[in-house]
Computed example of a mutant assay.
Amino acid sequence: MNAGAVIDILDTKQTKQKLTQKATQLDGEAVQAAGFVGGTQNNGMSTWEWWASAGGLVAIAACMTLLVIRQRRFSN
């Protein structure tokens, strides 16, 4: 049964190279379009990432402090 599909068989080395180049190009464009990293201008963390990390560390410190206070109150 013929479904009418035509398939072109290409050289595997050329195909892999083309796909790799395309994927690399698209990944770089997607990262820059997302606005999280400024490409060559900003290779570090964004401001919101620093603030989120700092907030997480403050929350962990607060929880640890509360645990120490509860243990010292109820250990006597």
Rank of each mutant, 00 (worst) to 15 (best):
M1V: 15
M1L: 12
N2T: 05
A3D: 13
A5C: 09
A5D: 13
V6C: 04
V6Q: 10
I7L: 01
D8V: 11
L10A: 07
D11N: 07
D11K: 05
D11M: 01
K13Y: 04
K13D: 01
K13M: 02
Q14A: 08
T15H: 06
K16C: 01
Q17S: 03
K18I: 03
L19I: 03
L19S: 10
L19Y: 07
T20N: 11
Q21F: 11
Q21Y: 14
K22I: 13
A23P: 02
A23H: 10
Q25G: 14
L26F: 10
L26D: 03
L26W: 03
D27W: 15
D27Y: 15
G28P: 01
G28L: 08
G28M: 12
G28I: 13
E29G: 02
E29R: 04
A30M: 13
V31S: 03
V31I: 11
V31M: 15
Q32A: 08
Q32T: 08
A33H: 06
A34F: 11
F36T: 10
V37G: 09
V37P: 00
G38M: 00
G38V: 00
G39M: 04
T40H: 14
T40S: 11
Q41R: 08
Q41A: 05
N42D: 12
N43S: 08
G44D: 04
G44T: 05
G44R: 07
S46A: 02
W48G: 05
W48T: 07
W48I: 12
W48N: 07
E49Q: 12
W50M: 05
W50G: 01
W50I: 05
W51V: 11
A52W: 09
A52Q: 03
S53T: 14
A54K: 07
A54S: 09
A54R: 13
A54W: 08
A54F: 10
G55V: 04
G55K: 13
G56H: 07
L57W: 15
L57H: 14
I60V: 08
I60C: 10
A61Y: 03
A61H: 00
A61Q: 05
A62W: 05
C63L: 15
C63W: 13
C63A: 15
M64Y: 03
M64Q: 13
M64K: 10
T65R: 14
T65L: 14
T65Q: 12
T65S: 10
T65Y: 08
L66H: 00
L66P: 00
L66I: 12
L67F: 04
L67E: 02
L67D: 02
V68S: 05
V68Y: 00
I69L: 08
I69K: 01
Q71G: 06
R72P: 00
R73E: 00
F74R: 14
N76G: 12
N76E: 13
N76M: 15
N76H: 13
